[in-house]
Amino acid sequence: MQVEVRVKLKDQVLDPQGEAIRRVLCNLGYEEVGQVRVGKLMLLEVAGEDPELLRARVEEAARELLANPVIEDFEVRLP
């Protein structure tokens, strides 16, 4: 099963990369774009049938390695 892990900077953490992208978008004429936040999307191919168990395992992996809780939030999505 393919499990998505979305990692993004916490809302209160400044994202200079997102801000740089917003400025370029604005220069290109996309003036309607307000804020840009850059995150990471990880696709994990995981063996298992029980979605609850699977989710718990991937969340554990996210806490241990995939996201840094000091600066990042994560979200696990199953198909």
């Binding site: 400044l14 200079p16 990369q17 000091v70 600066i71």
Partner: peptide, 9 residues
């Protein structure tokens, strides 16, 4: 704490 990308990128 943690390290973020430099302010200047």
């Amino acid at each position: 704490g943690a390290m973020l990308m430099n302010r200047s990128l």
